[in-house]
Write a protein that binds this DNA or RNA. Structure first.
Lengths: 201, 201
DNA sequence: TTAAAATGAACGATTGTTCATTTTCTCGGG
DNA sequence: CCCGAGAAAATGAACAATCGTTCATTTTAA
Protein backbone atom coordinates (compact mmCIF):
# COMPACT_ATOMS: atom_id res chain seq x y z
CA UNK A 1 0.00 0.00 0.00
CA UNK A 2 1.30 3.40 -1.00
CA UNK A 3 -0.21 5.51 1.77
CA UNK A 4 1.23 3.19 4.40
CA UNK A 5 4.75 4.17 3.42
CA UNK A 6 3.86 7.85 3.43
CA UNK A 7 2.48 7.53 6.94
CA UNK A 8 5.43 5.52 8.22
CA UNK A 9 7.76 8.22 6.91
CA UNK A 10 5.72 10.90 8.67
CA UNK A 11 5.69 8.86 11.87
CA UNK A 12 9.44 8.32 11.77
CA UNK A 13 9.87 12.05 11.17
CA UNK A 14 7.79 12.75 14.25
CA UNK A 15 9.80 10.39 16.46
CA UNK A 16 13.16 11.60 15.18
CA UNK A 17 12.09 15.19 15.71
CA UNK A 18 11.02 14.48 19.27
CA UNK A 19 14.21 12.74 20.28
CA UNK A 20 16.86 14.61 18.30
CA UNK A 21 15.27 17.99 17.73
CA UNK A 22 14.96 19.92 14.50
CA UNK A 23 18.68 20.33 14.35
CA UNK A 24 20.33 16.96 14.48
CA UNK A 25 17.62 15.73 12.17
CA UNK A 26 18.84 14.27 8.88
CA UNK A 27 17.20 12.58 5.93
CA UNK A 28 19.63 9.66 6.17
CA UNK A 29 18.65 8.94 9.76
CA UNK A 30 15.03 9.37 8.83
CA UNK A 31 15.31 6.84 6.00
CA UNK A 32 16.85 4.32 8.37
CA UNK A 33 14.28 4.88 11.12
CA UNK A 34 11.38 4.71 8.65
CA UNK A 35 12.79 1.54 7.09
CA UNK A 36 12.93 2.92 3.57
CA UNK A 37 15.65 3.98 1.17
CA UNK A 38 16.74 7.59 1.08
CA UNK A 39 15.26 8.13 -2.35
CA UNK A 40 11.85 6.81 -1.35
CA UNK A 41 11.19 9.86 0.82
CA UNK A 42 11.29 12.03 -2.28
CA UNK A 43 8.51 10.01 -3.90
CA UNK A 44 6.12 11.27 -1.23
CA UNK A 45 7.54 14.66 -0.34
CA UNK A 46 9.08 17.44 -2.38
CA UNK A 47 12.02 17.99 -0.08
CA UNK A 48 12.93 18.27 3.58
CA UNK A 49 11.03 21.51 4.13
CA UNK A 50 7.92 20.10 2.52
CA UNK A 51 8.13 17.02 4.73
CA UNK A 52 8.45 19.12 7.88
CA UNK A 53 5.57 21.34 6.81
CA UNK A 54 3.30 18.38 6.07
CA UNK A 55 4.09 16.88 9.45
CA UNK A 56 3.19 20.15 11.11
CA UNK A 57 -0.21 20.23 9.41
CA UNK A 58 -0.70 16.61 10.37
CA UNK A 59 0.06 17.35 14.00
CA UNK A 60 -2.26 20.32 14.19
CA UNK A 61 -5.26 18.46 12.81
CA UNK A 62 -4.52 15.51 15.09
CA UNK A 63 -4.40 17.78 18.13
CA UNK A 64 -7.70 19.36 17.14
CA UNK A 65 -9.29 15.96 16.58
CA UNK A 66 -8.30 14.79 20.05
CA UNK A 67 -9.18 18.08 21.74
CA UNK A 68 -12.82 17.91 20.68
CA UNK A 69 -13.41 14.16 20.68
CA UNK A 70 -16.27 14.43 23.17
CA UNK A 71 -17.31 17.97 22.36
CA UNK A 72 -20.86 18.91 23.35
CA UNK A 73 -21.87 22.55 22.91
CA UNK A 74 -24.95 22.07 25.08
CA UNK A 75 -22.91 21.39 28.23
CA UNK A 76 -22.19 24.11 30.80
CA UNK A 77 -19.21 26.21 29.74
CA UNK A 78 -16.86 25.08 32.48
CA UNK A 79 -17.67 21.44 31.78
CA UNK A 80 -16.88 22.01 28.10
CA UNK A 81 -13.65 23.66 29.14
CA UNK A 82 -12.77 20.91 31.59
CA UNK A 83 -13.25 18.27 28.92
CA UNK A 84 -11.02 20.04 26.44
CA UNK A 85 -8.24 20.47 28.96
CA UNK A 86 -8.49 16.85 30.05
CA UNK A 87 -8.44 15.75 26.43
CA UNK A 88 -5.35 17.84 25.84
CA UNK A 89 -3.69 16.29 28.85
CA UNK A 90 -4.47 12.69 27.96
CA UNK A 91 -3.42 13.36 24.39
CA UNK A 92 -0.05 14.53 25.62
CA UNK A 93 0.19 11.44 27.78
CA UNK A 94 -0.65 9.15 24.86
CA UNK A 95 1.51 10.86 22.25
CA UNK A 96 4.50 12.53 23.90
CA UNK A 97 6.33 12.68 20.57
CA UNK A 98 3.63 14.91 19.15
CA UNK A 99 3.79 17.20 22.15
CA UNK A 100 7.59 17.47 22.00
CA UNK A 101 7.58 18.15 18.28
CA UNK A 102 4.74 20.63 18.41
CA UNK A 103 6.53 22.70 21.02
CA UNK A 104 9.47 23.02 18.66
CA UNK A 105 7.22 24.08 15.81
CA UNK A 106 5.49 26.67 17.96
CA UNK A 107 8.73 28.38 18.89
CA UNK A 108 10.64 28.29 15.64
CA UNK A 109 11.12 31.38 13.49
CA UNK A 110 7.90 31.55 11.45
CA UNK A 111 9.47 32.00 8.01
CA UNK A 112 10.88 28.50 8.38
CA UNK A 113 7.50 26.93 8.94
CA UNK A 114 5.57 28.62 6.18
CA UNK A 115 7.03 28.87 2.71
CA UNK A 116 9.97 31.12 3.47
CA UNK A 117 9.80 32.67 0.03
CA UNK A 118 6.72 34.79 0.70
CA UNK A 119 7.70 37.81 2.74
CA UNK A 120 4.10 39.04 2.58
CA UNK A 121 2.99 39.49 6.21
CA UNK A 122 -0.66 39.24 5.21
CA UNK A 123 -0.08 35.78 3.75
CA UNK A 124 1.49 34.80 7.08
CA UNK A 125 -1.60 35.94 8.95
CA UNK A 126 -3.90 34.14 6.52
CA UNK A 127 -1.93 30.93 6.77
CA UNK A 128 -2.01 31.16 10.53
CA UNK A 129 -5.74 31.78 10.67
CA UNK A 130 -6.49 28.74 8.51
CA UNK A 131 -4.28 26.68 10.79
CA UNK A 132 -6.16 28.05 13.75
CA UNK A 133 -9.53 27.26 12.17
CA UNK A 134 -9.27 23.63 13.25
CA UNK A 135 -9.65 24.84 16.82
CA UNK A 136 -13.04 26.41 16.08
CA UNK A 137 -14.98 24.69 18.91
CA UNK A 138 -12.65 26.24 21.45
CA UNK A 139 -13.04 29.66 19.85
CA UNK A 140 -16.81 29.13 19.95
CA UNK A 141 -16.56 28.36 23.64
CA UNK A 142 -14.68 31.60 24.20
CA UNK A 143 -17.18 33.59 22.14
CA UNK A 144 -20.28 32.38 23.94
CA UNK A 145 -18.52 32.71 27.29
CA UNK A 146 -17.75 36.34 26.56
CA UNK A 147 -21.33 36.98 25.49
CA UNK A 148 -22.64 35.50 28.71
CA UNK A 149 -20.18 37.56 30.72
CA UNK A 150 -18.61 34.40 32.08
CA UNK A 151 -15.32 34.76 30.26
CA UNK A 152 -13.12 37.85 30.26
CA UNK A 153 -13.42 40.17 27.26
CA UNK A 154 -10.00 39.25 25.90
CA UNK A 155 -8.99 38.19 22.40
CA UNK A 156 -8.81 34.53 21.46
CA UNK A 157 -5.03 34.59 21.40
CA UNK A 158 -4.97 35.86 24.98
CA UNK A 159 -7.37 33.23 26.23
CA UNK A 160 -5.53 30.45 24.39
CA UNK A 161 -2.22 31.57 25.85
CA UNK A 162 -3.67 31.66 29.36
CA UNK A 163 -5.12 28.16 29.33
CA UNK A 164 -3.24 26.08 26.75
CA UNK A 165 0.36 27.15 27.25
CA UNK A 166 0.62 26.27 30.94
CA UNK A 167 -0.89 22.84 30.44
CA UNK A 168 1.36 22.02 27.49
CA UNK A 169 4.41 23.22 29.34
CA UNK A 170 3.62 21.14 32.40
CA UNK A 171 2.79 18.11 30.29
CA UNK A 172 6.24 18.34 28.75
CA UNK A 173 7.82 18.76 32.16
CA UNK A 174 5.88 15.80 33.48
CA UNK A 175 6.94 13.59 30.58
CA UNK A 176 10.58 14.58 30.97
CA UNK A 177 10.48 13.82 34.69
CA UNK A 178 11.13 17.42 35.68
CA UNK A 179 7.85 17.79 37.56
CA UNK A 180 5.25 15.30 38.72
CA UNK A 181 1.62 16.11 37.93
CA UNK A 182 -0.95 14.04 39.78
CA UNK A 183 -4.64 13.82 38.93
CA UNK A 184 -5.39 16.30 41.69
CA UNK A 185 -2.72 18.62 40.32
CA UNK A 186 -4.32 18.42 36.91
CA UNK A 187 -7.73 19.35 38.31
CA UNK A 188 -6.20 22.23 40.25
CA UNK A 189 -4.43 23.38 37.12
CA UNK A 190 -7.63 23.30 35.09
CA UNK A 191 -9.40 25.26 37.81
CA UNK A 192 -6.56 27.78 38.00
CA UNK A 193 -6.51 28.41 34.27
CA UNK A 194 -10.29 28.75 34.35
CA UNK A 195 -9.80 31.42 37.00
CA UNK A 196 -7.48 33.15 34.56
CA UNK A 197 -9.94 33.34 31.68
CA UNK A 198 -13.27 33.54 33.53
CA UNK A 199 -14.89 36.50 35.25
CA UNK A 200 -15.68 36.27 38.93
CA UNK A 201 -19.02 36.82 40.71
CA UNK B 1 40.45 43.30 24.33
CA UNK B 2 39.90 39.58 24.59
CA UNK B 3 36.53 39.51 26.32
CA UNK B 4 35.08 41.84 23.72
CA UNK B 5 35.53 39.22 21.04
CA UNK B 6 33.96 36.57 23.22
CA UNK B 7 30.92 38.74 23.79
CA UNK B 8 30.58 39.66 20.13
CA UNK B 9 30.61 35.98 19.23
CA UNK B 10 27.91 35.29 21.82
CA UNK B 11 25.85 38.20 20.56
CA UNK B 12 26.12 37.07 16.95
CA UNK B 13 25.11 33.60 18.06
CA UNK B 14 22.03 35.04 19.71
CA UNK B 15 20.99 37.01 16.62
CA UNK B 16 21.61 34.16 14.23
CA UNK B 17 19.66 31.82 16.47
CA UNK B 18 16.73 34.21 16.59
CA UNK B 19 16.52 34.72 12.86
CA UNK B 20 17.50 31.31 11.48
CA UNK B 21 16.62 28.96 14.28
CA UNK B 22 18.76 26.28 15.85
CA UNK B 23 18.74 24.31 12.64
CA UNK B 24 19.98 26.47 9.81
CA UNK B 25 22.61 27.73 12.21
CA UNK B 26 26.18 27.17 11.08
CA UNK B 27 29.59 28.12 12.42
CA UNK B 28 30.55 29.62 9.07
CA UNK B 29 27.60 32.00 9.11
CA UNK B 30 28.30 32.78 12.73
CA UNK B 31 31.92 33.66 11.97
CA UNK B 32 30.79 36.04 9.23
CA UNK B 33 28.11 37.69 11.36
CA UNK B 34 30.46 38.06 14.30
CA UNK B 35 33.18 39.48 12.08
CA UNK B 36 35.79 36.91 13.04
CA UNK B 37 37.50 33.99 11.36
CA UNK B 38 36.05 30.52 11.76
CA UNK B 39 38.96 29.37 13.87
CA UNK B 40 38.66 32.26 16.31
CA UNK B 41 35.44 30.86 17.72
CA UNK B 42 37.35 27.83 18.95
CA UNK B 43 39.67 30.02 20.97
CA UNK B 44 36.76 31.00 23.20
CA UNK B 45 34.52 27.95 23.06
CA UNK B 46 35.19 24.24 23.03
CA UNK B 47 32.85 23.46 20.20
CA UNK B 48 29.39 24.26 18.87
CA UNK B 49 27.55 22.58 21.73
CA UNK B 50 29.64 24.42 24.31
CA UNK B 51 28.91 27.73 22.58
CA UNK B 52 25.17 27.07 22.57
CA UNK B 53 25.25 26.03 26.21
CA UNK B 54 27.18 29.11 27.28
CA UNK B 55 24.72 31.33 25.42
CA UNK B 56 21.86 29.62 27.22
CA UNK B 57 23.39 30.31 30.61
CA UNK B 58 24.02 33.90 29.56
CA UNK B 59 20.41 34.33 28.51
CA UNK B 60 19.01 32.91 31.74
CA UNK B 61 21.04 35.17 33.99
CA UNK B 62 20.20 38.18 31.84
CA UNK B 63 16.49 37.38 32.07
CA UNK B 64 16.74 37.07 35.82
CA UNK B 65 18.64 40.34 36.09
CA UNK B 66 15.97 42.22 34.18
CA UNK B 67 13.07 40.47 35.92
CA UNK B 68 14.12 41.71 39.35
CA UNK B 69 15.66 45.07 38.48
CA UNK B 70 13.29 46.97 40.77
CA UNK B 71 12.58 44.13 43.20
CA UNK B 72 11.30 45.19 46.60
CA UNK B 73 10.21 42.43 48.96
CA UNK B 74 8.44 44.93 51.24
CA UNK B 75 5.84 45.81 48.62
CA UNK B 76 2.38 44.22 48.56
CA UNK B 77 2.47 40.87 46.80
CA UNK B 78 0.44 41.88 43.76
CA UNK B 79 2.58 44.97 43.26
CA UNK B 80 5.68 42.79 43.36
CA UNK B 81 4.05 40.47 40.87
CA UNK B 82 2.95 43.31 38.61
CA UNK B 83 6.46 44.70 38.50
CA UNK B 84 7.99 41.37 37.56
CA UNK B 85 5.50 40.84 34.77
CA UNK B 86 5.99 44.35 33.45
CA UNK B 87 9.75 43.87 33.60
CA UNK B 88 9.39 40.64 31.68
CA UNK B 89 7.30 42.38 29.07
CA UNK B 90 9.60 45.35 28.57
CA UNK B 91 12.58 43.03 28.47
CA UNK B 92 10.95 41.13 25.64
CA UNK B 93 10.26 44.39 23.88
CA UNK B 94 13.86 45.53 24.27
CA UNK B 95 15.55 42.24 23.40
CA UNK B 96 13.36 40.25 21.02
CA UNK B 97 16.32 38.13 19.98
CA UNK B 98 16.70 36.84 23.51
CA UNK B 99 13.02 36.02 23.72
CA UNK B 100 13.02 34.18 20.39
CA UNK B 101 16.12 32.20 21.27
CA UNK B 102 14.99 31.36 24.77
CA UNK B 103 11.76 29.91 23.48
CA UNK B 104 13.75 27.53 21.31
CA UNK B 105 15.92 26.51 24.23
CA UNK B 106 12.90 25.88 26.41
CA UNK B 107 11.34 23.47 23.94
CA UNK B 108 14.35 21.57 22.72
CA UNK B 109 15.04 17.98 23.83
CA UNK B 110 16.82 18.43 27.15
CA UNK B 111 19.76 16.10 26.48
CA UNK B 112 20.88 18.56 23.82
CA UNK B 113 21.02 21.47 26.22
CA UNK B 114 22.83 19.79 29.05
CA UNK B 115 25.88 17.67 28.38
CA UNK B 116 24.26 14.87 26.42
CA UNK B 117 26.76 12.39 27.73
CA UNK B 118 25.25 12.11 31.20
CA UNK B 119 22.12 10.01 31.05
CA UNK B 120 21.78 10.37 34.82
CA UNK B 121 18.33 11.83 35.45
CA UNK B 122 19.37 13.13 38.85
CA UNK B 123 22.10 15.23 37.26
CA UNK B 124 19.51 16.66 34.93
CA UNK B 125 17.34 17.69 37.85
CA UNK B 126 20.30 19.20 39.68
CA UNK B 127 21.40 21.18 36.66
CA UNK B 128 17.88 22.46 36.17
CA UNK B 129 17.50 23.51 39.80
CA UNK B 130 20.73 25.52 39.70
CA UNK B 131 19.53 27.17 36.52
CA UNK B 132 16.25 27.96 38.25
CA UNK B 133 18.01 29.39 41.30
CA UNK B 134 18.54 32.72 39.54
CA UNK B 135 14.78 33.21 39.73
CA UNK B 136 14.79 33.00 43.52
CA UNK B 137 12.93 36.29 44.17
CA UNK B 138 9.98 35.02 42.19
CA UNK B 139 10.04 31.74 44.11
CA UNK B 140 10.17 33.76 47.33
CA UNK B 141 7.13 35.69 46.20
CA UNK B 142 5.29 32.44 45.63
CA UNK B 143 6.35 31.05 48.99
CA UNK B 144 5.22 34.00 51.06
CA UNK B 145 2.01 34.26 49.02
CA UNK B 146 1.20 30.66 49.81
CA UNK B 147 1.92 31.20 53.49
CA UNK B 148 -0.41 34.18 53.60
CA UNK B 149 -3.10 32.21 51.80
CA UNK B 150 -3.05 34.71 48.95
CA UNK B 151 -1.54 32.37 46.37
CA UNK B 152 -2.84 28.92 45.54
CA UNK B 153 -1.05 25.98 47.19
CA UNK B 154 0.55 24.82 43.96
CA UNK B 155 4.17 23.95 43.21
CA UNK B 156 6.54 26.56 41.84
CA UNK B 157 6.54 24.94 38.39
CA UNK B 158 2.76 25.20 38.24
CA UNK B 159 2.71 28.85 39.23
CA UNK B 160 5.52 29.71 36.81
CA UNK B 161 3.72 27.96 33.98
CA UNK B 162 0.51 29.81 34.75
CA UNK B 163 1.98 33.30 34.76
CA UNK B 164 5.17 33.28 32.69
CA UNK B 165 4.26 31.09 29.73
CA UNK B 166 1.26 33.13 28.56
CA UNK B 167 3.14 36.40 28.74
CA UNK B 168 6.15 35.04 26.85
CA UNK B 169 3.95 33.47 24.21
CA UNK B 170 2.02 36.70 23.64
CA UNK B 171 5.20 38.75 23.62
CA UNK B 172 6.48 36.56 20.82
CA UNK B 173 3.18 36.85 18.96
CA UNK B 174 3.23 40.59 19.41
CA UNK B 175 6.77 40.90 18.08
CA UNK B 176 5.99 38.72 15.07
CA UNK B 177 2.92 40.79 14.26
CA UNK B 178 0.53 37.91 14.86
CA UNK B 179 -1.33 39.66 17.68
CA UNK B 180 -1.37 43.24 18.91
CA UNK B 181 -0.95 43.75 22.66
CA UNK B 182 -1.77 47.24 23.92
CA UNK B 183 -0.89 48.62 27.33
CA UNK B 184 -4.43 47.90 28.49
CA UNK B 185 -4.13 44.37 27.15
CA UNK B 186 -0.94 43.90 29.11
CA UNK B 187 -2.58 45.08 32.33
CA UNK B 188 -5.53 42.78 31.70
CA UNK B 189 -3.15 39.91 31.03
CA UNK B 190 -1.26 40.52 34.25
CA UNK B 191 -4.53 40.67 36.15
CA UNK B 192 -5.77 37.48 34.49
CA UNK B 193 -2.61 35.52 35.29
CA UNK B 194 -2.82 36.83 38.84
CA UNK B 195 -6.33 35.41 38.98
CA UNK B 196 -4.83 32.10 37.91
CA UNK B 197 -2.28 31.88 40.71
CA UNK B 198 -4.03 33.77 43.51
CA UNK B 199 -6.81 32.62 45.83
CA UNK B 200 -10.08 34.50 45.85
CA UNK B 201 -11.95 36.08 48.78
C1' DT C 1 4.89 -8.02 -20.30
C1' DT C 2 4.45 -3.42 -18.74
C1' DA C 3 3.98 0.00 -15.54
C1' DA C 4 4.79 1.63 -10.92
C1' DA C 5 7.40 1.68 -6.77
C1' DA C 6 11.54 1.39 -4.40
C1' DT C 7 16.30 1.32 -4.19
C1' DG C 8 21.07 3.01 -2.79
C1' DA C 9 25.42 4.43 -4.90
C1' DA C 10 27.02 8.75 -6.22
C1' DC C 11 26.90 13.92 -6.47
C1' DG C 12 28.31 18.52 -5.20
C1' DA C 13 27.60 21.43 -1.39
C1' DT C 14 28.17 22.33 3.23
C1' DT C 15 29.10 20.91 7.84
C1' DG C 16 32.17 21.37 12.29
C1' DT C 17 36.81 21.46 13.30
C1' DT C 18 41.99 21.83 12.94
C1' DC C 19 46.49 23.87 12.50
C1' DA C 20 50.36 25.88 9.95
C1' DT C 21 50.78 30.55 9.06
C1' DT C 22 50.30 35.50 9.70
C1' DT C 23 49.13 39.46 12.35
C1' DT C 24 49.00 41.97 16.55
C1' DC C 25 50.42 42.99 21.00
C1' DT C 26 53.99 43.36 24.87
C1' DC C 27 57.93 45.25 26.74
C1' DG C 28 62.94 45.61 28.13
C1' DG C 29 67.48 47.47 26.25
C1' DG C 30 69.91 50.70 23.20
C1' DC D 1 61.54 57.23 21.65
C1' DC D 2 62.23 53.47 18.91
C1' DC D 3 63.31 48.92 17.93
C1' DG D 4 62.76 44.13 17.32
C1' DA D 5 62.42 39.68 19.76
C1' DG D 6 59.11 36.70 21.67
C1' DA D 7 54.37 35.71 23.13
C1' DA D 8 49.60 35.80 22.23
C1' DA D 9 45.79 36.24 19.26
C1' DA D 10 43.71 35.71 14.98
C1' DT D 11 43.47 33.88 10.61
C1' DG D 12 41.42 31.03 6.70
C1' DA D 13 42.73 27.23 3.61
C1' DA D 14 42.14 22.44 4.03
C1' DC D 15 40.16 18.16 6.23
C1' DA D 16 37.12 14.29 6.69
C1' DA D 17 32.45 13.69 7.50
C1' DT D 18 27.93 14.35 6.56
C1' DC D 19 24.32 16.91 4.42
C1' DG D 20 20.08 16.94 1.02
C1' DT D 21 19.10 15.32 -3.34
C1' DT D 22 19.19 12.76 -7.85
C1' DC D 23 18.64 9.02 -11.05
C1' DA D 24 20.03 4.76 -13.46
C1' DT D 25 18.84 0.41 -11.94
C1' DT D 26 16.28 -3.27 -9.68
C1' DT D 27 12.22 -5.04 -7.44
C1' DT D 28 7.40 -5.45 -7.03
C1' DA D 29 2.66 -5.28 -8.70
C1' DA D 30 -0.88 -5.42 -12.26
Amino acid sequence: MADDKRRSILHATLCLLAERGLHGFSMKQLAEKAGVAAGTIYLYFEDKDDLIRKLHEDILSEVARRLFVNYDASLPLFEQYRRMMENLWSFHRDCPEIMLSKAQFDTMPPDLLFGHQGKDPQALLDQRSTLLAVFQPMLDLFASGRELGMIKPLGDEFLCALCIDPLCDLARGHYLGIVCVTNDDLNALIAASWDAISTHP
